[in-house]
């Protein structure tokens, strides 16, 4: 029952995290910042706007992105197969990319293309993460992973690699080239408006939930450790966001793939020796 409640509320929790983050970022930049509930104000406002459509495919694909992302979050909460969750998440990203390519807008295309390249950067690391958990627990099932003791120590290198892909997924500096407001005005989301933009806006919240739920997996059955991890990583990500510029896609690929794969590799090899 509690799971159902969590699944239904997932976007709302994500919205709260997003609001907290905006507030925190403003404080780090010496500003007052928007109210905590600002994301929800934006949400209600977007419902009330006149909706524009470029073409039906574009809009429907955007919605599919949102729904499938919600599915991903639901499956994590329900404790399904981790590998399947990762692939379903890939599917949801692909919906978004297809949406971006389905309009005749150059910024949308560039954004989609960068999103594709970003997938190239983070997907192998996610798969390795899944395999790491599999080696530790003998199962891909998230419910099993949650029942076991914390995996943070044995998967520490993979954890570091995972930290690198949080900014990619959450569109934070230095790895936010796929959204890049100053270059391509938001990339994929540029042609969405009104209530249809809402889906993308809320999908961003779900992305928070997805990434932090994966993070919690490192803590296993230790809820305290999980909360601590969340707090530390949340702070760290924002700190890095405020201390770096946006780097280019080619650099992103080199850095994330180079460092992430090496770390993951070392960890997997180490695991099989122990």
């Amino acid at each position: 029952m509690i799971e159902i409640l969590l699944i239904v509320c997932a976007p709302l929790i994500g919205g709260l995290i997003y609001g907290l983050e905006r507030k925190m970022r403003a404080r780090m930049q010496n500003r007052q910042g928007p109210p905590l509930l600002q994301p929800f104000y934006d949400m209600w406002k977007l419902i009330d706007k006149q909706a524009f459509i470029i073409n039906p495919y574009h809009t429907i694909l955007g919605m599919m992105h949102f729904i499938s992302l919600w599915m991903v979050v639901a499956f994590i909460i329900l404790g399904e197969n981790l590998l399947y969750v990762i692939f379903l998440h890939l599917l949801s990203s692909i919906f978004l990319i297809l949406a971006g390519f389905s309009v005749k807008s150059i910024y949308s295309h560039i954004g989609s293309n960068r999103e594709l390249l970003a997938i190239l950067a983070y997907e192998p690391i996610l798969i390795m993460l899944g395999v790491g958990f599999f080696i530790l627990n003998g199962s891909f099932d998230i419910s099993v992973i949650r029942e076991n003791s914390p995996a943070l120590a044995s998967l520490f290198l993979l954890f570091l690699a995972f930290l690198m892909l949080i900014p990619i997924k959450l569109k934070k500096s230095p790895f936010d080239a796929s959204e890049a407001h100053q270059e391509i005005v938001g990339g994929v989301e540029i042609e969405f408006s009104g209530v249809f933009f809402e889906f993308l806006y809320m999908a961003k919240w779900l992305e928070y939930i997805f990434i932090y739920l994966l993070l919690m997996l490192f803590a296993g059955d230790n809820i305290l450790l999980g909360t601590g991890l969340f707090a530390i990583v949340f702070f760290l990500v924002n700190l890095v966001d405020n201390a770096t510029a946006r780097i280019k896609m080619s650099h992103l690929l080199k850095i994330v793939l180079g460092i992430g794969l090496t770390l993951g590799m070392c960890n997997l090899i180490g695991l099989s020796y122990v």
């Binding site: 909706a51 524009f52 807008s105 042609e191």
Partner: peptide
Amino acid sequence: FSLLLFKKAHRVKEYN
């Protein structure tokens, strides 16, 4: 959603 909302939505041009 598309059944419900598409009729009300205006068709516009891409941002250029």
